[in-house]
Nucleic acid binder design. Structure first.
Length: 428
RNA sequence: GUGCCCGUAGCUCAAUGGUAGAGCACCGCUCUGUGGCAGCGGCUACGAGGGUCCGAUUCCCUUCGGGCACCCCA
């Protein structure tokens, strides 16, 4: 305890410190998220980071809770898990108050989530994630709307259609293809799905070969289905299945909404079992960084795990780490600026005057910081410059006498002599 | 959880089995009423522990940290 040098300066493994410039970016990302989803009428909710471990076991199984979450026993003997995702929590909240909530529900949240695993690019132990969900609408209109919110957020960040792609599929359709069209066993379906998930990462030949090993004589038939790029070109029996019709409708709606970079992709599977209908993933199209950014889908049976009547849901989630990487890649992050509009420097014996002026300006709604050091003026101004503060002025004998201040813009080096009211107009 | 690669100053890098240097950044001065430019000066490092060796930043092991791939994907 006495050894000061032993204390680490690093943040805990897989977590980040947010210095003001990092927090600025974080706030920017959050503000874009909020602005867009609130435009669609989504309401913000929140919850504790702690949940009973049982909640995740019911959904994901013992293995995942044990090996990939922060789980501990509290002093009352309860098993507790720090939330690794928000969906079980929101499903719980919806189930609990289902009689008092006004469906359809449009809800969003920006929780921080924790998972215990080895950190790597795009995947840390703590991250923040926008969760957008709609409950109580069974039709594909809800699916199309949630995809549309995802699209609008990408556009609000300044992404162009050619930067990303929305790949859409449907679980019901996939199940039809596997179980009805190909009449596969459970095991074959499972293995084939896992393989399909890797389709875009593999070369065509090894992929076909691997599929052959799983499906034998049926593999060619499946590979043919996987090659279909346009919903309309699907085998009529597939297209006419319930899942096929859903997919067709969603694609039409997205097109009607003016979303041009959405397309059918039979390779979109998504890891979790709880998806029951539409699934989608947003892909980064940068050749150097070709990967899934985020995604979501329809989960009509999830609320039912609480033993209540069926409440349908559809939604998606996007993490701050991956979107930040994406925005950096495309140079879409905003330039840093502090909330301070004016930095007041002062000469000897005029600190009181500087504080008085600051106080007056603050009461008029300006964000003003006073340099409280007795350093020379050049050092004070330099501080303002390094902090990206747009305006600076110096309080001295002359200013106090005349009530006029030389306000300098540090951006373009112009200087104007202004009184208080003029300062307010200028800096605001 | 598995495999491979990496760890020198705040950052990006260099040299070396005989304890290390640059650029940028930072602090100060030139410049006691105004930042950016320039000059001068200053600060800061071999991730940690152990082994081999007369001697280790360099070689070996462990550990911690980082990167990539796999696993998993919430």
């Amino acid at each position: 305890m006495t050894s000061k040098s032993k204390l680490s300066l690093e943040p805990y493994k897989g977590t980040r410190d947010f210095y003001p410039r990092d927090q600025f970016i974080q706030n920017y990302i959050f503000s874009v998220w909020k602005k867009v989803v609130e435009k669609y009428g989504y309401l913000e909710y929140g919850a504790s980071i702690l949940e009973e471990s049982e909640l995740y076991r019911a959904k994901s199984g013992d293995e995942i809770v044990k090996e990939q979450t922060y789980t501990f026993t509290d002093r009352g003997g309860r098993e507790v898990t720090i939330r690794p995702e928000m969906t079980p929590t929101v499903a719980r909240m919806v189930a609990q108050k289902r009689r008092h909530l006004n469906f359809p529900l449009r809800w969003y949240s920006i929780p921080n989530l924790f998972r215990y695993e080895r950190p790597q690019r795009g995947r840390l132990r703590e991250h923040w994630q926008l969760n957008v969900d709609m409950f109580g609408v069974e039709g594909v209109e809800a699916d199309a709307e949630v995809i549309s919110t995802a699209y609008d957020i990408m556009k609000a960040f300044g992404a162009k259609d050619e930067h990303f792609e929305i790949r859409v599929n449907n679980r019901r359709l996939m199940n039809y293809i596997l179980a009805e069209h190909l009449s596969l066993t459970e095991e074959q379906s499972h293995k084939a799905s896992k393989l399909v998930d890797k389709m875009h990462k593999m070369e065509a030949v090894p992929f076909s070969k691997a599929m052959q090993e799983i499906l034998a004589e049926k593999s060619e038939m499946f590979l043919k289905v996987l090659r279909v790029k346009d919903v309309g070109s699907l085998d009529p029996s597939i297209l006419n299945s319930a899942g096929g019709q859903e997919l067709k409708l969603i694609m039409e709606k997205l097109k009607a909404m003016g979303i041009k970079n959405a397309l059918y992709d039979p390779a979109v599977v998504r890891g979790f079992d709880y998806y029951t209908g539409m699934v989608f993933e947003v892909y980064d199209l940068n050749p150097k960084n070709n990967r899934s950014l985020f995604g979501g889908g329809r989960y009509d049976d999830l609320v039912g795990i609480f033993g209540v009547e069926k409440i349908t849901g559809t939604g998606w989630a996007m993490g701050d780490v991956t979107i930040r990487d994406f925005l950096e890649t495309y140079n879409l992050l905003p330039e840093y600026y502090p909330p301070v509009g004016l930095y007041i420097c002062h000469l000897n014996n005029h600190l009181e005057d500087a504080n008085q002026l600051a106080s007056d300006l603050r009461s008029q709604g300006l964000n003003v910081a006073v340099d409280l050091t007795d350093r020379k003026v050049s050092a004070q101004v330099k501080t303002a410059d390094k902090e990206n503060i747009p305006y600076v002025l110096v309080v001295g004998e002359e200013e106090v006498k005349t009530g006029k201040y030389k306000v300098k813009s540090l951006k373009n080096s112009t200087e104007h002599t202004l009184d208080k009211n003029e300062i307010i107009a200028q800096v605001k």
